[in-house]
């Protein structure tokens, strides 16, 4: 039995006008860390809300630990943990009260599954008498994760836990997920940050309700059809413009200090490109082969 199964799952809003989720199918295995990766409006939250039985599908079906999201919704609710994108704990209860509250609702006690949250809760313990609303952003997030874990869920759903979070806190959060994975909890997480894809066992890329692909990050990267080059010059805006106008170029995207470029001719010689760019008046040119990133793959699929 798979932890999560989606079969042509669809969601339509506004009397059929807006297709939020368009016949999406994928599976998540037990103990897997699965990432749903895509920008705002891709349908990630709608999928999460259907899987956690908070929203009824308009088509297709889905099950979580073998239970149907429509027929067995009550059973699913007691077996999954859900951390929504927006902070949704009680701001006027203390850290400890929030935890106790969620434990009680799920018929358990803090002590029972303390081992699951121990590593995270230790960092919160000095503030356990503080109102949840008065915690810093990072601390709120840790508390929300503890509350979602307190009943030892079979599957943990995390909807954009790192959106708007600075790079340091993002890294810390993923460290916590890695540790949770050791505890054999299935985790489904969504994110708009493409660089987080590599931290998942498998990922689904999603855009405008359509699932573009599902695979391991390594397989998605190795399926990138062309050789990519990282190109740099002293004047980057000029380089990007020159490349866009260059007849040999197939794709050309800014990637931090480099541009990632592919060519129509896979056998093109680096020297040819280099001297063309020089002729166009660019200086400080650097050009080398580079592996694709998940973001390259995402862009490629969007432009198809």
């Amino acid at each position: 039995m798979k932890a999560v199964t989606l079969n042509g799952l669809s969601k339509v809003y506004g009397k059929g006008k807006a297709i939020a989720v368009n016949k999406v199918s994928f599976e998540v295995s037990n103990g897997e860390l699965f990432g749903l990766i895509g920008p705002d409006g891709a349908g990630k939250t709608s999928i999460f809300r259907m899987l956690t039985t908070l929203l009824l599908p308009d088509g297709g079906s889905a099950s979580v630990i073998g239970l149907d999201v429509v027929k067995d919704h009550k059973k699913i609710r007691s077996r999954v943990g859900y951390m929504p994108g927006r902070f949704s704990l009680y701001p006027d209860l203390t850290v400890e009260e929030n935890l106790t509250f969620f434990a009680t609702i799920f018929n358990t006690r803090l002590a029972e599954n303390y081992h699951l949250i121990k590593d995270i809760y230790i960092q919160l313990e000095p503030f356990k008498k503080r109102m949840a609303g008065k915690l810093s952003g990072g601390m709120k997030q840790k508390l929300a994760l503890c509350c979602a874990l307190i009943h030892k869920p079979a599957v943990l759903f995390l909807d954009e836990p790192t959106t708007g979070v600075d790079p340091v806190s993002r890294r810390e959060f993923w460290e916590m997920l890695k540790q949770l994975k050791q505890q054999a909890i299935t985790i489904v997480v969504s994110t708009p940050y493409m660089d987080e894809a590599n931290l998942c066992d498998r990922i689904g890329l999603i855009q405008s309700g359509d699932l573009l692909t599902v695979d391991t990050p390594a397989n998605i990267i190795s399926a990138y059809p062309e050789q990519l080059y990282a190109v740099k010059a002293d004047n980057m805006p000029a380089l990007l413009k020159t490349l866009s106008a260059y007849d040999e170029v197939l794709s050309n995207n800014a990637f931090g200090e480099y541009a990632h470029v592919s060519f129509k001719d896979q056998a093109i010689e680096v020297n040819v490109v280099q001297s063309y760019l020089q002729q166009q008046g660019l200086s400080g040119i650097e050009l080398r082969r580079t592996p694709a990133t998940i973001e390259d793959c995402f862009i490629k699929r969007l432009s198809n």
Binding site: G38, P39, D40, T163, G164, Q207, N253, F298, L302
Partner: peptide, 13 residues
């Protein structure tokens, strides 16, 4: 102020 948060990679560029 964080103008590109949550925006897809093509639009971001």
């Amino acid at each position: 102020d964080e103008p590109t948060g949550g925006v897809d990679p093509v639009t971001r560029r």
